[in-house]
Design a protein around this nucleic acid. Structure first.
Lengths: 122, 122
DNA sequence: CTTGAATCTCACATGGATGTCAGATTATAG
DNA sequence: CTATAATCTGACATCCATGTGAGATTCAAG
């Protein structure tokens, strides 16, 4: 399939797909005229990349983890695997922080609700 | 206290404190010469702002919520309160996404660990 | 072959909090 | 008063994924 279809099916912009390729995260074969062609696999690949991005991993980080991401294999360096653990821990910390922030918001909401209820504003 | 001390005590850079003020999120009195002065209150205020930032709220969003944040009061507009709920929902959604991403990472780690164990690499 | 849609590359713009540098001014200790 | 640390304003830089526009080329269908 061509880039437009991949964009549609993966829900990612054409611009982003080209960017992923530029970063070495997504491969494509080219037609004689230079247009990108993708297989079905790439749909999942892109969805997967999106999940990693949403986890807060940068392109560079993902590239560093590629050995582990591509195929779990004993050939993967310990360093890459350790980075994987590291990123996991960072994400856990991040989620904890957000959860605390969420609690703050909830408290605020509760306080406001109480005041509003008491005044018949809500 | 002056800005340097506030920065030290709140763990936020001087640059950021000035930025918060510029955005209307933090107030300061000024000395005759123009230097900013803060009270103890501001330490908590800054910590609070940091929590909101970490929740993914932008300065503009925080400003919009100020009526609710400042003091829960029936005078707060319904609109501001609704925005508060909206931000809470966005945050919940965001955390859910991150949690899914975390699960992905955990699966990756487990898969890698299995392969490594099987090959005596770990 | 022609036409219009799709794609190509290149490059600059965006947002948002923060870093950083420059040059000037103020505060404070000796 | 002087030296030095702290602060001031203003402006430009940074990161990074993505948007966007121009101008050229290719693809698919008639």
């Amino acid at each position: 399939m061509r880039i437009g279809e991949l964009a549609r099916r993966s829900g990612v912009s054409i611009r982003s797909l080209r960017y992923y390729e530029e970063q070495g995260l997504l491969a494509s074969s080219r037609s004689a005229g230079g247009h990108r062609h993708y297989t079905e696999e790439e749909v999942d690949r892109v969805a997967y990349l999106q999940r990693l991005y949403s986890a807060g991993l940068s392109s560079q980080t993902i590239i560093g983890l590629l050995p582990c991401l591509e195929a779990p294999s004993a050939a993967n360096s310990n360093a890459a695997f350790d980075r994987l653990l590291e990123e996991r821990d960072k994400l856990v910390t991040h989620i904890s922080g957000l959860t605390r922030a969420l609690e703050s918001l909830n408290e605020l909401i509760a306080a406001n609700r109480a005041h509003r209820a008491a005044s018949g504003a809500g």
